[in-house]
Every structure is written in C-alpha cells, then in structure tokens.
C-alpha cells in the first residue's frame, strides 16, 4: 500500500477509487456493444499500426502477407478507440496537473538504478513480447481481460490466467530474486 499512498499524496485529486473506475469501464463496455457492436480491445490497433508503418516503408506488397490479408492495416473503430484512449489519459493527467516527463519509473530506479539505456532496452524487449504475445493469443488485458471475460468466454479466462501467471512469475524474479 505504500506506493499507492505515496502516489495519493502526490496526486491527491488524481486517483479515483478502483470500484468507481471499474463500474465506469463496465458501462463503457455496454456502450461499445450497444452503440458500436464492438467489444473494447486495444492490441489489434497496434498490429494495424505496425502494418501501416510497414506499408509506408516497404510499399503495398506488405498487404499480401497472410496476416494483413486477414487483418487489413487500416484505421478502423478500434484504432480510433486507442487514439481516444491517449487523449483521455492525457486530459485526465493534465486536469490534475500530473504530467511529469520521466524516462525511468521510481520503482525500477530503486532496484535497477537510474540508467535510461537499461530501462529503455528492457522496456523495448518487454514491449516486443507484449505485442507478439497479444497477437499470438488474439487479445490483451482489454480484449481478453475485460471484454472476453465479461462475456464468460473460456479462451479469455484461460488467457487472463496466463497473463498473470507469466507476469507474476517474472515480477517476482525481477524484484525478489535478482
């Protein structure tokens, strides 16, 4: 709880109770199903962006890749959702005066030191695993973790279990063993 309290001291108005936030996200899921006939999911937009960047660099033959034939790299509802996510997160932080440009998170620095290069290398490697794993398992903490589990889909419950099993194991190795 220490970290949460430290954060709360710094960002008194910026943290809302988790149950309020959770109910809010649940209601957004209703609206997404009702108004847009879409579940909320984030990682597909990353695959589409990767395809769009690859297409800009290497030309239209990128679209012939089997993955991009099944998942065309274009801006769609899910991509707009992620653009909105950034704007909303930025607005929330801006409203409470919480925007701090920072390369290395505090907890990382306390254990692994202030090296920006070390943090960025690790983050990049971790990010590649996240992107790769999310597409392999067709979803992330939003698509499986919230939208899939709330529909009681077996795949999503198994995926969430694996997200946290892998995450908890590696977090303990990083912060308890090393």
């Amino acid at each position: 709880m220490d970290i949460f309290q430290t954060l709360a001291n710094h960002f008194v108005v910026s943290v809302w109770p988790p149950y309020i936030v959770g109910v809010g996200i649940g209601i957004l899921c209703w609206l997404a199903f009702l108004l847009s006939n879409h579940p909320i999911g984030v990682s597909t937009a990353f695959a589409k962006s990767a395809g769009m960047i690859e297409e800009a660099v290497r030309g239209p033959e990128v679209r012939k890749k089997p993955y991009y034939q099944e998942n065309p790299p274009t801006i769609d509802w899910g991509w707009m959702l992620v653009a909105g996510l950034f704007l909303g997160a930025y607005t929330a932080a801006w409203l409470s005066g919480d925007i701090n440009w920072k390369w290395v998170p505090q907890m990382w620095e306390d254990t692994f030191g202030p090296s920006i290069l070390l943090r960025l290398s690790a983050a990049l490697f971790g990010g590649i695993c996240v992107g790769f794993g999310a597409r392999w398992g067709s979803g992330c903490t939003s698509g499986h973790g919230i939208s899939g589990t709330l529909q009681l889909v077996l795949t999503s419950w198994i995926a969430v279990f694996c997200f946290f099993a892998g995450g908890v194991a590696v977090a303990f190795i990083m912060y308890r063993v090393i």
Partner: peptide, 20 residues
C-alpha cells in the same frame, strides 16, 4: 491461448505496462 498469453505476461512484467 497458452503460449501467446504466457509470452504476453512475461513481457507485461518486463515492460511494466499492457498495451492500453
């Protein structure tokens, strides 16, 4: 659903964020 999400979880801890 097993290997993909496990790789995701490993990356999740190393990166410290999920996609959203």
């Amino acid at each position: 659903t097993i290997p993909g999400p496990l790789i995701f979880g490993i990356g999740f801890a190393i990166l410290g964020y999920c996609p959203g």
